[in-house]
């Protein structure tokens, strides 16, 4: 395991598949053919005088039912900006009351395998990261990414959401999913990505010995003959492969001592982002938090600038 003294100089091994755009256009077309079958139920227990909370369910790829939390200001006039909040790997999706209190119609999705979305599909944690990893057509994240992208469809289904003011935000796996959603859904007008996971999969297993990436190292130790298949599969799912599709304004923050999502992969992701309106915040002295204590304010201001809550 060799760590460069300057992680910004790291050259990723990710090879963008020539047919990656066709692959995802096909997956998104398959998903679009499945009716959303929305179920939106007000949740009085989780609502407050300031924020209305709803439990949401919809159908995604493979006809898997997906859950989420929708929160919006209890009293609002006119249309609201929509914000998709995407979750970390082992955390539960949060009820986005904090964003609703700031004037957003915020939807926090629980992609397949997360609690409340695990009735039909539940590979477990650890386990989700390598489930079906030898075939891009069966890999967990094929559906997981679509479950997240369908959060955009949910927001667009709401009369109170302004379709021209949609954003996505997340940290860790959520940072990776922000990149994915911004890359695959042109309706997204602004994105923030913190300490992005799912970027440089195969680089990361050589750069860190921590979980969740360690799941892939575990898998390859037991199945060494599958290394090429795994490499070929994750290339289609790697944020570095998808990032050239991003055209919206985006900010990325990383910690230079991040032992979960190595900073080398964060730099490689940032270089690959297609948008001209992009900014990287690389924080020395910080780990996987990527200086959230300070950077949260930067995210709030950046989203407010573009979405005008």
């Amino acid at each position: 395991m060799t760590i460069l003294s300057n992680p910004a100089e790291f050259v990723s091994s990710v090879k963008r598949p020539a047919d990656i755009d066709a692959f995802w256009e096909d997956v998104m077309a398959q998903t679009a053919r499945i009716p959303l079958q929305l179920d939106v139920t007000h949740d009085p227990l989780r609502s407050s005088p300031q924020v209305d909370v709803y439990q949401v369910h919809y159908t995604s790829l493979d006809h898997v039912r997906i859950a989420g939390w929708y929160a919006r200001p209890a009293n609002h006039a006119g249309q609201l900006p929509g914000l998709l909040v995407v979750p970390g790997y082992s955390m539960e999706p949060l009820i986005p009351k904090n964003w609703a209190a700031r004037g957003y119609a915020a939807f926090s999705v629980a992609p397949r395998g997360k609690l409340r979305s695990n009735g039909q599909f539940n590979p477990g944690y650890p386990g989700l990261l390598t489930h079906g990893i030898v075939d891009r057509n069966t890999y967990t994240y094929r559906g997981f990414y679509m479950d997240s992208c369908r959060g955009v469809d949910f927001l667009l289904s709401r009369d109170e959401v302004d379709a021209d003011r949609l954003g996505v935000t997340g940290h860790s796996q959520g940072g990776g999913l922000s990149v994915v959603v911004a890359a695959l859904r042109p309706e997204i007008k602004v994105a923030t990505s913190g300490a992005p996971f799912l970027c440089g999969f195969m680089d990361a297993i050589d750069l860190t010995d921590g979980y969740p990436y360690q799941e892939i190292a575990d898998y390859l130790r037991l199945h060494p003959d599958s290394r090429q298949q795994v490499t070929d599969t994750v290339a289609y799912f790697d944020g570095i492969s998808l990032a050239p599709r991003i055209t919206c304004p985006i900010i990325v923050n990383i910690g230079l001592q991040d032992s979960t999502c190595p900073p080398e992969t964060g730099y490689a992701l940032f270089r690959a982002i297609g948008s001209e309106d992009k900014q990287l915040y690389d924080y020395d002295g910080y780990g996987h938090d990527a200086n959230n204590a300070v950077h949260t304010g930067i995210i709030e201001a950046f989203l407010a600038q573009h979405l005008e809550p």
Binding site: Y89, S90, M91, E92, L115, Y125, P126, D209, G210, Y211, P212, Q214, S259, T260, G287, H288
Partner: peptide, 15 residues
């Protein structure tokens, strides 16, 4: 507080 317990905590070394 959360549904997932890891073999070793995320962010620490498997070593």
């Amino acid at each position: 507080y959360g549904s997932v317990a890891d073999l070793v905590p995320q962010g620490t070394s498997n070593g």
